[in-house]
Design a protein around this nucleic acid. Structure first.
Lengths: 118, 118
DNA sequence: GTAATAAATGAACACATAAACATGTGAGGC
DNA sequence: GCCTCACATGTTTATGTGTTCATTTATTAC
């Protein structure tokens, strides 16, 4: 960490000040990073997209993704922590769904970007 | 990986089929995960948010975030690879900016979510 | 040409993370 | 009570990731 100002040739001082004063709190950036990190995994992306179609119980997710129940459950734990999914118990099953439309929108907006650039 | 069907008690077969057939390609999910992974880091989140306010050269970013030029440059490399930023050279400086409005929208939408839940 | 500066890159290290495997928990049916 | 099933959770292992430090490239000024 050297925050070295690129001396005199680079006249950007005003922009630096403007941007610096517009920055958010450490806490907000940490939350933001955690949010996106939760999306940023192949398996979790598939889980979230699957749930964007229909609520599913754990073993159903395991079937859809063709993965072990344990692997799915570990990922769901992270998604719960990130508040991206909610769940309800029904007998021996636990059904997961996206927490709100914000989550769905983020996925869909991400897909838009992928389809344009990919 | 055991894709074991949760036998008979769990009557979800129709949903599994519906969701499975609605899933995207492996390639698309990999892209999607890569996209979000690029957002999913404290430093990169700050870089992207800073750039959402104004284009900045590398050393200006280093100042704003109070980090070394090298650390910033390494992260910018990832953001370039993810096509989230573009850059233009001007003398000895390289100015970075967000690649398009998609990127800005994703950040802002993420912030909305954070502000509601956080 | 040389010196100085902005940025990029490579290597090394500490740390985080995903999946596999084994085990624990808790509800339902007997 | 016991057993079974759906799910959760520890633990380990292999892999990925972010930062630091040292070095290199590229551009400008002399």
């Amino acid at each position: 960490m050297t925050g070295a100002s690129c001396s005199d040739t680079c006249r950007h001082t005003q922009n630096v000040e403007k941007v610096r004063s517009g920055m958010l709190s450490e806490r907000e950036f940490l939350f933001l990073a955690e949010l996106f990190k939760a999306f940023g995994d192949y398996t979790r992306a598939r889980i979230l997209f699957a749930l964007s179609m229909h609520e599913l119980c754990v073993c159903a997710l395991a079937e859809v993704l063709d993965m072990s129940q344990s692997a799915i459950s570990h990922q769901l734990r992270l998604l719960r922590a990130a508040k991206l999914v909610r769940y309800r118990k029904e007998g021996k099953n636990v059904f997961y769904a996206l927490d709100d439309d914000h989550v769905r929108n983020l996925i869909l907006q991400g897909l838009d970007h992928v389809r344009e650039q990919g």
